[in-house]
C-alpha cells in the first residue's frame, strides 16, 4: 500500500527576518495511512517545517513531498492543521467557528441540514454542547482547544497535522485532552501526525515515534510503540515496556538537547 505521506530526501532553508535558517537536512520518512505518528525533537528542529511542507504551505528546498503517491504542488486541502495557538476567529461564536471549514471550497456543497447536523455532532464529540453560542474569549483554554479540535474534524480530513497542540496547557489538562484525542481517533482510521517536544506524550499516544536532531533537522531514531490499545493515558506510564521505550528514545534525543536549548 502506498503510504499516505512520503518525505523523500527533504531539505529546507527559509528566512526568519534576515536570518537564514537551515531547517531540514535529508529527511526521508513515510507516514502510513491510519497510523498515529509522533515526531519528537528539541525546539527548533524543523518539526513544524515538516508539517508546513505536508500541508503544502511551503515548497521543499530539495527533495519531494508525496501525498498518496503524488507530489504536492499546492496547498493540501485533504489535511487539517492544528496548531499550538487555537487560531479560532475571535469574532465568531463557537458554532460559527466550527462551521468555518464547511463554508469553504468543496465542503460548501453540503446541504444546510447536513451541515447543521455535522456541526452539532462534532461539538458534542469534543464535549462543548451548551457552549455553542459563546465567543472564544468567554471560554477557558481547554475549551478553546476543544473548539479548535471540533473545527479541525468537522470537514473530515484524511490526515490531521498537529503541531504541539497541547504545548501551552497545564499538565493535568494536557492528560485530559490526550485521552480525549485518543478516544476520538481510535477506530476512525484517520492518519494523525503529532509533533511534540514531550517524549512521554509521544510514547503515550503514538503507534510510531520519530526522533529528530536539532537544526538542521535529521531523523535520529524511529521506534514502533507496541503498547496495547485502547490506551489509558493516566496509567500507561506504569505499564511495563513504557520505561524501555522512554529510555531508548531519550538516549537518541539527549544528544541534541544541549544544542537545542541554545538555538
Amino acid at each position: 500500500m502506498t503510504p499516505i505521506l512520503e518525505f523523500r530526501d527533504l531539505s529546507k532553508v527559509f528566512f526568519k527576518g534576515e536570518q537564514r535558517v537551515h531547517a531540514l537536512a535529508h529527511v526521508t520518512a513515510e507516514v502510513e495511512e491510519g497510523e498515529l505518528l509522533a515526531i519528537v525533537g528539541p525546539s527548533g528542529c524543523g518539526k513544524s517545517t515538516l508539517l508546513n511542507l505536508s500541508a503544502g504551505l511551503m515548497e521543499p528546498g530539495t527533495g519531494e513531498v508525496l501525498y498518496r503517491g503524488q507530489p504536492l504542488t499546492r496547498v493540501n486541502t485533504q489535511v487539517s492543521y492544528v496548531t499550538q495557538k487555537d487560531n479560532l476567529l475571535p469574532w465568531r461564536i463557537v458554532e460559527d467557528n466550527v462551521a468555518l471549514p464547511l463554508e469553504l471550497g468543496a465542503h460548501a456543497k453540503l446541504s444546510k441540514d447536513d451541515r447543521r447536523e455535522r456541526i452539532a455532532r462534532y461539538i458534542e464529540l469534543v464535549g462543548l454542547t451548551g457552549f455553542e453560542k459563546h465567543y472564544p474569549s468567554e471560554l477557558s483554554g481547554g475549551m478553546r482547544k476543544r473548539a479548535q479540535l471540533a473545527r479541525s474534524l468537522v470537514y473530515e480530513p484524511d490526515v490531521l497535522l498537529m503541531d504541539e497542540p497541547f504545548g501551552a496547557l497545564d499538565a493535568q489538562l494536557k492528560l485530559v485532552l490526550q485521552a480525549e484525542l485518543l478516544r476520538m481517533w481510535e477506530g476512525t482510521g484517520k492518519t494523525l501526525v503529532f509533533v511534540t517536544h514531550d517524549l512521554a506524550e509521544a510514547i503515550t499516544i503514538a503507534d510510531r515515534v520519530i526522533v529528530m536532531s536539532s537544526r538542521p533537522g535529521r531523523i535520529r531514531a524511529i521506534e514502533h510503540i507496541d503498547l496495547p490499545r485502547p490506551r489509558d493515558v493516566f496509567g500507561i506510564r506504569f505499564v511495563p515496556g513504557f520505561g524501555d521505550y522512554f529510555e531508548r528514545l531519550w538516549s537518541a534525543l539527549r544528544e541534541d538537547i544541549h544544542q537545542g536549548q541554545e538555538v
Binding site: 508546513n52 486541502t77 496548531t83 487560531n87 476567529l89 463554508e103 469553504l104 471550497g105
Partner: peptide, 22 residues
C-alpha cells in the same frame, strides 16, 4: 495573524475567502 491564514487555506479557502473571512 498569518497562522490563521495558513490554517484556513488548508481548509480549502480561496484568496477571496481569506480576505472576506479573515
Amino acid at each position: 495573524d498569518r497562522d490563521l491564514i495558513d490554517v484556513i487555506r488548508v481548509m480549502g479557502a480561496s484568496r477571496l475567502d481569506v480576505i472576506r473571512r479573515v
